[in-house]
Design a protein around this nucleic acid. Sequence first.
DNA 1: ATAGTCACTTTCTTAAAGGTAATCGATAGT
DNA 2: ACTATCGATTACCTTTAAGAAAGTGACTAT
Lengths: 116, 116
Amino acid sequence: MNMNNDISKENILAIKDAIELLGGKWKFCILYNLQKYHTMRFKDLQEMSVGITPKVLSKQLQELEDNLLITRTVNATKPVTVSYEPTKYAEEVIPVIDALLSFGSKHRKKIKEKYS
Amino acid sequence: MNMNNDISKENILAIKDAIELLGGKWKFCILYNLQKYHTMRFKDLQEMSVGITPKVLSKQLQELEDNLLITRTVNATKPVTVSYEPTKYAEEVIPVIDALLSFGSKHRKKIKEKYS
DNA sequence: ATAGTCACTTTCTTAAAGGTAATCGATAGT
DNA sequence: ACTATCGATTACCTTTAAGAAAGTGACTAT
């Protein structure tokens, strides 16, 4: 069983990179919501991501911004609000979200069958 | 910003389930290799997944088996070997792997640009 | 008898992710 | 003055994932 070809190694690295960036408990949910509603304030995201705390949400958003997937905009509203939206580049993750969503739905059914 | 529709909530749960099952440092690599070579022994997988320890590999494989994504077969060889292969059902994760691989490759380039 | 292979398992330790709760600073309303 | 909102930040703590190192048991080869 040889893996002495660079393509395979590169592929593994690409998968690892992607999952390092997008993995974890919240990133996909945040991106899913941002793709769905396009613009969301901090508060909105907090309410949508049931169970997330401001500290964790803040960290996730910073990481997504660092990776060029979302933009952060401070609005001149009465109490200052901050808007987040997906970048053009974030469109590249839509296929991943879709595939994950599709598999996740099928898997929920599959596991239900297993225990019935 | 309302999320008072069940479809959205279901979708979020589906994504969460999928990432809970497939997330982590190794599962996608293991599945990628199994899809590529179809049958692999424990030793092969350990060599392919550079850096993994037997304990961790063993745990990942058990979880994948519990989730009906791979099968485990003990072979009657001189020193006993064990073969793992993806189930028919595991074909459902191929689109996720492909999407992740595609995004990961693009992202590696993107981040290279950012720091150059 | 000794050493090696394979597929694990066990124990211990560390690092990272995530959660709780309180607080901050700016602003506005009562 | 007091309270509330928004978007955080801080300190602290718990949980989980992962890694290191060694050992086990069945077997084979020398």
